[in-house]
């Protein structure tokens, strides 16, 4: 027994030494370690995602033919409407291209859209994230915006070979600028995810709302991205401003809460907008480890 105790003491000492070494280790080694464990889990994540797809498939398989026919009919109707819209969009697009040509407008925000399935979701008081089944192999880069339709889902924070982690709009590490609907002067406000309490639903905070902004009575106020920060394209929907009086945390500004546009935890698929050119933010991250 004594021997065991002595061995324990030696082990504690060894552990302490190891902790010291671990702290002094270059961050690259630690990052490699994290990356390795991450990659180890990637296949499982893929498998889970595929499994979910399969479940969905069989669930659909079990529907009756009548149901499917009805769904098909509905879809055809939607399709026709969309096709019509697409035609008119075509004209607008052509006009846009022509105008850009005339004014020699330089398009700074070109994105490559990568569609990705959601593998798992994970959230706590300190983060709100999802894992998607696309990674470095698919050209995804950290910092890219993630959207679904025209609503913002979040931002890519970590990229692995075949998976990526996306911080949701409600995550404390998410921050972007936004416009409030009904503010003609287009003053920018700040959207920042809030750490939701355990068991509480996650929200984001909208701050720096000008003192003289008032919500239009009796309607929901939509919150849009500004497209000015060089990360998110403009006019994407972030959510709606929670109705009710805005609190005035700081002198001169008001604060409100953002209700995310979609149920972020029920997303099956998202698209990642990978900028075609490196953004300064990415360059900044590369030149120096900021954190």
């Amino acid at each position: 027994m004594d021997q065991n105790r002595q061995g324990a003491r030696a082990s504690y000492i060894a552990l302490t030494i190891f902790v010291a070494i671990w702290i002094l280790l270059p961050s690259a080694v630690r990052r490699f370690n994290r990356e390795a464990f991450s990659e180890f889990q990637a296949p499982a994540l893929h498998l889970a995602g595929k499994g979910r797809d399969l479940a969905k498939f069989w669930e659909l398989k079990s529907r009756s033919n009548e149901e499917m026919a009805a769904a098909g009919r509905d879809l055809a109707r939607i399709n026709a409407a969309l096709e019509l819209k697409l035609k008119s969009m075509d004209d607008v697009r052509r006009e846009n291209v022509r105008l850009r040509d005339i004014t020699r407008y330089k398009d700074t925000a070109d994105y490559l859209s990568v569609v990705a399935r959601v593998a798992t979701r994970d959230s706590s008081s300190w983060w709100q994230r999802i894992v998607i089944r696309k990674g470095r192999n698919d050209g995804i880069r950290p910092g890219s915006p993630v959207i679904f339709g025209i609503t913002v889902v979040g931002r890519v924070t970590a990229v692995h070979l075949t998976t990526s982690e996306v911080d949701l709009v409600t995550s404390p590490s998410f921050r972007c600028t936004a416009y409030l609907e009904g503010d003609e002067q287009n003053r920018i406000v700040l959207v920042n995810g809030m750490a939701g309490n355990s068991l509480g639903s996650a929200r984001a905070r909208i701050s720096v709302i000008p003192y003289d902004y008032f919500q239009p009575a009796g309607q929901t106020t939509q919150v849009f991205t500004t497209g000015m920060g060089g990360v998110f394209p403009s006019r994407l929907l972030l959510g709606t401003l929670e109705s009710g009086p805005l609190s005035a945390k700081e002198a001169n500004f008001k604060e409100g809460q953002l209700i995310p546009a979609r149920d972020l935890y029920n997303l099956q698929e998202v698209s990642v907008l990978v900028p075609l050119h490196q953004t300064p933010g990415e360059a900044l991250l590369q030149t120096d480890q900021l954190q």
Binding site: T120, D122, S123, G196, S198, L199, G200, S201
Partner: peptide, 11 residues
């Protein structure tokens, strides 16, 4: 399992 409880912020 955390995936299912994600909306309530539990791990």
């Amino acid at each position: 399992a955390s995936d299912f409880t994600a909306s309530s912020g539990l791990v």
